[in-house]
């Protein structure tokens, strides 16, 4: 597998040969992480707005407890996977680093970005073909997934430090977040807002993935399954 520079434009005409852009690490990461995010969004939503009260004796019920357990357990995994994904950018070539470093300093990047917008506004009839993430998609992933993901992890562990107490490693590492905001109510609000941003991303992301798969001149979903990008005319 080759290491591709961000936003590598392909020539207009013809059908370029397929390229391998995702190694197995990123692919596995993507689908496991996607599952975790779904679990985290659902359980997180219910932590803030719990389901209707359960009837019965509290000793035999643990509904909120399970919701929180699932959330916190998946939260840990989510954070670990985030670290793993960072590590993959160094060990797995292809376009694994595109997620974190959009090449906004390159004229090609901006050109592609504008074109992608025009394509989505239905002004252009065809999008460009790329080796890698398209610039608009890339920036969306950075701003609506990576950034909120980072905020979620930081605020999540800061809130977790409230559970584990002021003597915990969570507090030692993330207590400063609490100090900045003063009132940990803010952490809940920020964490939740970040969830909505991420949930918004997931919705657009899935829609666009399907749409691009059908309408653009390159494979999408199968690329995330096989690692290989194929091009059409």
């Amino acid at each position: 597998m080759k290491h591709y520079i961000p936003y590598h434009q392909l020539p207009e005409g013809g059908i370029p040969p397929p390229v391998t852009i995702y190694g197995p690490g990123v692919r596995w990461w993507h689908w496991i992480n996607g599952l975790l995010v779904l679990v985290l969004c659902v359980t997180g939503y219910f932590i803030g707005v719990p389901p209707p009260s359960a009837l019965g004796d509290p000793s035999s019920l643990y509904i909120m407890g399970w919701i929180r357990f699932l959330h916190l357990a998946s939260g840990y995994l989510f954070a670990l996977l985030a670290i793993a994904r960072l590590w993959l950018t160094f060990v797995e070539k292809g376009i694994s680093h595109h997620l974190f470093v959009p090449a906004i300093w390159r004229a090609e990047w901006f050109d592609g970005f504008m074109r992608q917008i025009r394509w989505n506004l239905l002004i252009n009839d065809q999008p460009k073909r790329y080796v890698g993430l398209n610039p608009l998609g890339g920036i969306a992933m950075l701003l609506m997934y990576v950034l909120p993901g980072f905020i979620i992890i930081v605020t999540g562990f800061a809130m977790y430090a409230e559970v584990t107490g002021h003597d915990s490693w969570q507090y030692a590492l993330f207590g400063w977040v609490t100090t900045i905001f003063g009132n940990t109510m803010d952490l809940h609000v920020i964490h939740r807002l970040a969830m909505w941003v991420m949930a918004g991303f997931v919705c657009i992301h899935v829609y666009i993935a399907v749409r691009e798969d059908v309408m653009s001149r390159q494979t999408m979903i199968s690329s995330m399954l096989s690692g290989e990008r194929q091009y059409r005319r």
Binding site: S53, A54, L55, S59, I63, M64, H166
Partner: peptide, 18 residues
Amino acid sequence: SQRVHDKCYRRAHFDAGQ
């Protein structure tokens, strides 16, 4: 050093979802 929630006597009902 601890939250009201950590030692609340209604906590069992929170965990139960009541």
